[in-house]
Design a protein around this nucleic acid. Structure first.
Lengths: 202, 202
DNA sequence: GTCTATACTCCGATAGAC
DNA sequence: GTCTATCGGAGTATAGAC
């Protein structure tokens, strides 16, 4: 069997199972038997279960943050606060509309894992985006201090992660007849409006 | 040894260890040896590790939601949007200021666990508060549809849980010199302002 | 009723055979 | 590069001591 083929089959199966049952609730035996490879293959190719998760998270975060930076760079000098918020949120929410809905689950889970090494890994990936984002917000809301921008940035990340992870499960449980809660475009626009208004409060 | 004393020692130790290392990363053997009781005591008193978590979560959610309902009931007929948001957020953030900071960790973790039974348990506890909250928001923002209120309610919960869990860890990592990010009063006021503005956007 | 000792199954990891 | 065998530790269940 090919090297890359085995690795890819493990990654695909792990992504699927992690998304469905969660990292801790998925065993290496489920992954390897699902992928049709030997139990020891995960240790051989990735170094262990945790490094396998790191690989998945990195593969998701890298293109996402690259796209965020690309959009931030494309902003003109007289951009609005909503433009900046959109640069940050839209690439993440776009993933929800793609066919593979494992990715947002993996992403949301990663931020929530109580794992210092993983937290540091994520922080390192997000840092350059955060720095550019703070500057861009500062341009549109000069009266807002750095502490305010940082705090509100955390609120935005929290709201985004919650939506990525649960996909408004609480709201849909409370009102099953509200079909708009299943519409990702509706949720995306609501989230962008919500966060833009939240930031703009000087 | 007394019945209630053994149960309480298990609850206290479990709360501490779950908060520090996470539910999945804490073993029953750590809990029982830390509490000075036998391994089987958890099965005997709670039925298993999962039911032990349920008990902890319930003990945290019950008084929190009772306080939220009490404050919602105390609102006068001409309340503001900020009043309603404050009723929901302040009791949760007040916990942060208490000496026992295990509780917010347990709360944030509970929402994060990929566990359908736990999700249902939480949804059932939150449901009465959510229903009253939606009505109260509707009073102040009559042009807002139910779907909008529900979606934005999810964003607010996401932002709150993120703060409860990480206590603005990302922001503090990005700017260690911003002391205000360690001030719970500052974070609370910022969160209330952020969510109030987010809801008010009709 | 409370608690102890113990056994059972499953987990992640790894040394070593092939 | 792949696989088997095996290890220590996990959660769980229970028989029996007090």
């Amino acid at each position: 069997m090919d090297n890359t083929e085995t690795k890819q089959k493990i990654l695909d199966t792990a992504q699927e199972l992690f998304a469905e049952h969660g990292y801790s609730n998925t065993s290496l035996r489920q992954i390897t038997s699902g992928a049709g490879v030997n139990l020891a293959a995960v240790s051989y190719y990735f170094g262990g279960k945790e490094q396998l998760l790191f690989e998945l998270v990195g593969n998701t975060l890298r293109p996402l943050n690259a796209e965020r930076l690309r959009r931030l760079d494309a902003l003109t000098s007289n951009h609005s606060t909503e433009d900046v918020v959109r640069c940050f949120l839209e690439p993440a929410i776009d993933i929800l509309s793609q066919d593979n809905c494992d990715i947002p689950c993996i992403l949301g889970q990663a931020h929530r894992e109580q794992n210092l090494a993983l937290q540091a890994f994520i922080a390192q990936e997000v840092r350059p985006v955060a720095a550019r984002f703070i500057d861009a917000i500062h341009d549109t809301l000069p009266r807002l201090g750095t502490a305010e921008i940082l705090a509100r940035g955390e609120f935005m990340i929290g709201a985004l992660l919650h939506v990525l992870h649960s996909q408004t499960a609480v709201a849909r449980a409370l009102a099953p007849d509200q079909q708009r809660l299943n519409d990702n475009t509706f949720i995306a626009e609501q989230l962008i409006k919500f966060c833009t208004a939240g930031f703009s409060n000087e």
